[in-house]
């Protein structure tokens, strides 16, 4: 991968939160990934695993505790405020709750112009605002003068996207952009994101907990667990042949529209016999919740719920390492490929 293909390179990102009494909570712990130009990188994982914290750090909405965030070759965490401000328009974000991320007292047109005002873009803005609204399938005449309370959830999410697009960004971070929407509205917004990415050659960092939604839009997908990435691979490959036990468990728990009987492919013939474990991929049980990020397990953080765990898993942290080109796994005993 040449450097010019890479738009965003995150290295060893750490994000801490101060919590009452004692050590800080490390919500993101050594996360590394890249986003290429024109690519969508999906991030999935259970509630509280650090997806939003990662997103906020990438957006520099919160200074990371450690690590580097290289955007177009520049480390955002070390950039002087003035230069960071100049870069800002290129980095945009949309959020889960479309209604509450828009100012209810302003009109749609004023909301879309917010970024232009903040970055002192020369007036007039009307044309830019109208174009952005049209690009997301809204009629500027019909909705430009309305307020968010007069719009549906799907329409609000379109406005949020228009507000991001008007600044001609290179990267749009989408934090659960469709989780609050109805399936049919969700489909419209997902199609819109795909069209927009293609048309504007955008890169997307797309965060969601719905595995099917993430697969739908992503070129590559990273799976997070308790502040770390445990698997990162091209979408098709990750879903077809997960190598990390946690990814397998997540996929197994997804309810299917048309349930299929378990197939031989899942039974993984020729799996490496691991003494002392029951290698039953496909039935990996994940009882209970992820452990508290305040007291994460030693070694591999998934070991308390992993049916392949052995002594080594408690002693050594498995690093994220490539198992094939472009497919990285953080596990001492990955599932057979």
């Amino acid at each position: 991968m040449t450097t010019s293909e890479v738009l965003l390179r995150v290295r060893d990102l750490a994000v801490d939160y101060r919590v009452p009494g004692g050590a800080p909570l490390r919500a993101v712990d050594g996360v590394s990934f890249t986003v290429r130009r024109g690519e969508t990188l999906g991030l999935v994982g259970e509630s509280g695993c650090g997806k939003s914290s990662t997103a906020r750090a990438v957006m520099m909405l919160r200074r990371p505790t450690g690590g580097r965030i290289e955007f177009d070759g520049q480390d955002l965490a070390r950039l002087p405020a003035r230069q960071l401000r100049r870069l800002r328009p290129q980095l945009q974000m949309i959020f889960q709750d479309p209604a509450s991320s828009l100012n209810p007292r302003r009109t749609v047109a004023a909301i879309v112009a917010e970024g232009l005002a903040a970055h002192r873009h020369p007036r007039p803005w009307t044309r830019l605002v109208d174009d952005a609204l049209s690009a997301v399938g809204l009629d500027p005449e019909a909705v430009g003068h309305r307020r968010p309370t007069e719009l549906s959830g799907g329409q609000c999410q379109r406005v949020a996207l228009a507000r991001a697009l008007v600044l001609a960004p290179a990267l749009v971070v989408c934090d659960e952009p469709v989780s609050a929407l109805d399936v049919s509205v969700q489909a419209q917004i997902l199609n819109l994101l795909e069209d927009t990415r293609r048309r504007h050659r955008l890169s997307l960092l797309f965060i969601a907990h719905d595995l099917a939604v993430v697969k739908q839009v992503s070129d590559r997908v990273g799976v997070m667990y308790l502040g770390r990435i445990c698997e990162l691979a091209p979408a098709e490959q990750l879903y077809r042949q997960p190598r990390h036990p946690y990814t397998r468990a997540l996929l197994d728990a997804v309810p299917l529209l048309e349930p299929v009987p378990p197939s031989g492919a899942i039974a993984a013939p020729g799996s490496i016999a691991v003494p002392g474990t029951v290698p039953t991929p496909g039935t990996a049980s994940t009882p209970g919740e992820p452990p508290s990020p305040l007291r994460p397990p030693s070694g591999c953080r998934f070991r308390t719920r992993c049916d392949r765990a052995r002594d080594r898993c408690a002693e050594e942290t498995p690093p994220l390492h490539p198992v094939t080109e472009d497919h990285q796994v953080a596990c001492h005993y990955p599932l057979p490929g």
């Binding site: 399936v183 969700q186 489909a187 199609n191 739908q216 839009v217 070129d219 879903y239 299917l256």
Partner: peptide, 25 residues
């Protein structure tokens, strides 16, 4: 039928275009 067609499915390849229901609820 439209509702079913708008659901992203795990077995579909990435970037499959989803069917949508035109118009408002």
């Amino acid at each position: 039928a439209a509702l079913l067609a708008s659901v992203p499915r795990l077995e579909q390849p990435s970037h499959t275009r989803l069917a949508t229901v035109a118009g408002l609820p």
